[in-house]
Nucleic acid binder design. Structure first.
Lengths: 338, 338
DNA sequence: TAACCCATTGCACAGCGGTGCAACTATATG
DNA sequence: CATATAGTTGCACCGCTGTGCAATGGGTTA
């Protein structure tokens, strides 16, 4: 067994197998013409030498690197982490691989990340947070790179947009609150102001308006547990204390519930109905039993990957560029049944 | 502005700038010799055309792709997700980029993942779960790829091993239990049997033995919340009910606490002391207030990345290959103060 | 036996950027 | 003014693999 410090190339395999380098290349290219005999010799030599096709070189000649960039921040958050997990899984299923670009501390937000994606000639990028400039979007498309935007409502064409039907969800939760007899509605939002969070806020307020109801709205901090606690203080110390709160995110809902119970002595759902969004694992923990909306994470991932993968094949009819998926309500114990 | 469907190459930039392709290459190679005048012309042309160095090609000639593979399962789990987040961050700080390989459904465990890493000529791989065969480890080293194993206690040489001082932690928590007046000790483990989980079990039992105490031990299921509930049932229905439980993981501790309080009516810490490990975010939520051990995630990530990065420079003295970091105890309310 | 078809194979070039070497320019020194 | 020196620049080759094209060989059919 020949051991070198640098890696083995096709030439060495060819030499050992007594064939041309082309034969080696064809052996590892599905659909290429190689005789059974040659293939056997090549595979044998490759095995002996520990040969692995160099994807960097392969990506250079084919116009496909097999790399897809996942761009986002707050990757440690339950929802984001699960989305990432699903995406990596689905990408691997179609033979691609995920490259993660963390934008937490990147001032240039996603633009810097997308440049990185271009440098690695990624086949596509999936953007989980932040919004790229239009100019960068153009740049990506011109570089033959496909873009998927998840939960970033916006207008421009070219990328695939996957969004949830937030309006429908807000309508459903409002109905649930009303059936529970609640009339003093509140909405607890973070100050992040991302499109999907704002869509929920607007959707909830609009739904309430059709029933002639006002909504007490607060926005504070990041989209996290601690903000939920602060929001509880803000909303529950109001003169007219709400009897139903929609928390824009499960994480916020958990903080809200903890503060409501422990610092205001409220019982949930008897004194206060609460709902959240995302259906993170903790929502199902028995300390919370949070009624919430489940994001179809697996479906989102499957569609994103299918769309990116379809870019390779020319025989496919174009898939739609705007997808709106339903978020299904998960009933637990934080809203009284009417 | 010239827009092509495929990406811009250095040749085109050179043509537009009226210089040789070498000049373009040197402009983007730190430390290469280019006059200020030429550099300016090149940068101008590059900007106009939207040129980005092709990392695939660059990785081919230099022996460094800039890619580091993160290999692991259960990436949606709080601890893993945070570790991944820290690793991606630190990698980016030294100019590298993370490629994630999810081994959740890979039967060939990490071996398949490492082959993928080799195909992309990753500069190194960081393994978060599972154990690679020795043969694969050799293969990686022969391909000039460096390996980091996190919390996978084992013997063989070559890779960097980063482990926690589980024994010390178990000694500390035992002391805390004893000071709280507990004598009926229990250990709630998952059935995963990974090295670090088993090290905690052994460490706890050993520490108890030196004090002449037995430990009721149970193992069940995956390392998750639901297992914690099951373990609570197993341990709290025993004839001699424990008055202190160490849960091998915070996730298990959360499930255990919920079941203990809600199904057995126990007060924590009055009736039962509980401790966990990892210091996930939820441990700090006020429903739990779990006393636990904080994994130095940022330190782990920093060391792993420094070690991989150092592989590039020849001027550095070799860093150690075995690192054992302390897990520091985070006091909250789940253990009575003695 | 001659003509023809098909599978297989190797050559040579392409994809993109890094870099040693030699040539060239401009400046400094004697 | 001649020479030494340092800084730039371009050529040409390298890293590794994919693939069009032509050549080869074998088998089949008339």
């Amino acid at each position: 067994m020949k051991l070198r410090n640098s890696s083995v190339s096709a030439r060495e395999v060819a030499a050992r197998a007594g064939v041309s380098r082309s034969a080696v290349s064809r052996t590892f290219t599905p659909g290429a013409s190689v005789s059974e005999e040659t293939r056997r010799k090549v595979l044998e030599a490759a095995e002996a030498l520990g040969y692995h096709v160099n994807q960097l070189a392969r990506g250079l000649t084919r116009q496909e690197s097999g790399i897809v960039c996942l761009i986002g921040s707050d990757l440690g958050t339950p929802y984001r982490a699960n989305l990432m997990k699903a995406l990596t899984q689905h990408l691997q299923n179609v033979g691609k691989v995920a490259m993660v670009i963390n934008t937490d501390r990147l001032d240039g937000s996603v633009d810097l990340a997308l440049r990185q994606a271009i440098r690695y000639r990624a086949d596509g990028s999936i953007i989980l947070s932040g919004m790229p400039d239009k100019s960068i979007t153009r740049l990506c498309l011109n570089n033959g790179q496909r873009l998927v935007l998840i939960n970033r409502d916006d207008e421009h064409d070219g990328p695939l947009h996957i969004n949830l039907d937030e309006a429908a969800a807000m309508g459903a939760v409002l109905m649930a609150f009303l059936r529970a007899g609640c009339r003093r509605l509140a909405f607890a939002n973070s100050a992040a102001g991302t499109p999907s969070l704002m869509a929920r806020e607007k959707g909830f307020i609009a739904a309430a308006a059709t029933m002639g109801l006002d909504v007490m709205t607060e926005r504070h901090g990041f989209t996290c547990y601690d903000s939920g606690r602060v929001l509880a203080h803000r909303l529950l110390t109001r003169k007219e204390r709400p009897d139903a709160v929609f928390c824009v995110t499960d994480l916020i809902a958990c903080g809200f519930m903890d503060a409501a119970r422990q610092e205001f002595g409220l019982r949930i759902p008897e004194d206060l109905c609460v709902a959240g969004f995302d259906d993170i694992e903790q929502a199902g923990w028995s300390s919370y039993g949070l009624t919430t909306f489940s994001q179809p994470i697996d479906d989102i991932a499957a569609r994103a990957v299918a769309w990116l993968d379809q870019g390779g094949r020319s025989d496919a009819q174009p898939l739609p560029s705007f997808i709106r998926l339903p978020a299904s309500m998960v009933w637990r114990q934080s809203i009284r049944k009417g």
